[in-house]
């Protein structure tokens, strides 16, 4: 006890991704400021996809992992609030809410007793927009179009709010699905749009900005509790620096992705934001069903810039 060691981290992204770089630098900071802690990152899902990484952290086989919001929603329905469209205005608003212990403190410790998992905080995954084979201005432009979404009621409702038809499709089949027309459109952040090469088959990106994506950084609760107070303090400081660096890296990666996709023939265009705002914001009333969810939603909205 009290003696640190390199922390095994399961990551679903590659070494070039902002999440990898930020976690790698987290390790460097830990090596300097703590007694023996460091990070040991396993990228590219080599230890399993996010649903399994979650179990590995719970079990202690892996110390930390990066998991998406819907994964945590499967453990505690309160997490649904931050998966809703338009709950965050932008990345800056999102990071402010997520790292405000007044708002998320209870939520982030809610998995400790049952799952032995503590949520440390979040890395933004940027604002998500729709891309297809023609520019989109209003929800009516997406009428009748099949939009690939992840497999959940919320995502299907979101596709309806955008004006189209939500179609769950395995992510690995999306490129060829867009190419052949099994689906007409998809939605993601600019970084994935570029690195997954989807601009090759769906060259029109329309800034619906319907959702600001979020990955959570989780850690095994026993491990966190075993740190000495000094190490814990240094760890928290290093993590804060890491998520701030990540936000910076994300902005740069987004800019590079836009430039890269544009050079590859993609066109980025604005939409009639007001036309999308109403149906997207209305989703909160459908998907918020408990008082605790409502309280989180209200707190998040109250933190938005006036």
């Amino acid at each position: 006890d009290g003696e640190g060691r390199p922390l095994r981290i399961a990551l679903n992204q590659s070494e070039a991704h902002p999440s990898y770089i930020a976690l790698d630098h987290l390790g460097e900071a830990l090596a300097e400021t703590t007694e023996g802690y460091d990070t040991d990152i396993y990228p590219n899902e080599t230890l399993g996809a996010q649903a399994e990484a979650l179990q590995l952290v719970s079990d202690g086989s892996v110390d930390m992992a990066v998991v998406s919001g819907p994964q945590l929603e499967n453990l505690n329905p309160d997490f649904v609030v931050f998966n809703l469209p338009r709950v965050f205005d932008d990345v800056e608003h999102q990071m402010r809410v997520i790292h405000d212990p007044e708002i998320t403190g209870d939520l982030f410790s809610s998995l400790e007793e049952r799952n032995n998992i503590t949520v440390l905080g979040g890395f933004t995954q940027g604002a998500r927009s729709v891309y297809t084979d023609e520019p989109i201005e209003t929800p009516a432009d997406l009428a009748g179009k099949q939009i690939r979404v992840q497999e959940s009621d919320l995502q299907l409702a979101m596709a309806r709010a955008l004006g189209g038809i939500g179609t769950p499709l395995a992510y690995g089949e999306l490129y060829t699905g867009l190419q052949s027309g099994v689906v007409d459109a998809a939605e993601n952040n600019e970084v994935s749009y570029f690195t997954q090469r989807h601009f090759e088959v769906a060259p029109y990106w329309s800034y619906t900005n319907h959702l600001v994506g979020l990955d959570y950084i989780i850690i095994n609760s026993d491990l966190l509790a075993s740190m000495t107070p000094a190490d814990r303090e240094a760890f928290d400081a290093a993590f804060t620096a890491a998520h701030e660096e990540h936000t910076q890296l994300w902005a740069e990666a987004t800019q590079e992705a836009i430039e890269g996709a544009t050079a590859g023939g993609a066109t980025f265009s604005e939409v009639d934001d007001a036309a999308f705002a109403e149906p997207l914001e209305a989703m909160a009333d459908t998907f918020i069903t408990t008082d605790s969810q409502r309280a989180l939603y209200d707190a998040a909205r109250a933190a938005a810039q006036p």
């Binding site: 399993g48 996809a49 399994e52 179990q55 202690g60 690995g172």
Partner: peptide, 23 residues
């Protein structure tokens, strides 16, 4: 590297997720 308990759990979990793939 993992100890017998976690090695057994992870092995079982991997067998399941190895098959759990749409393609």
């Amino acid at each position: 590297i993992l100890g017998p308990e976690q090695a057994a759990l992870v092995s079982a979990q991997r067998i399941f997720t190895g098959i759990n793939s749409f393609p």
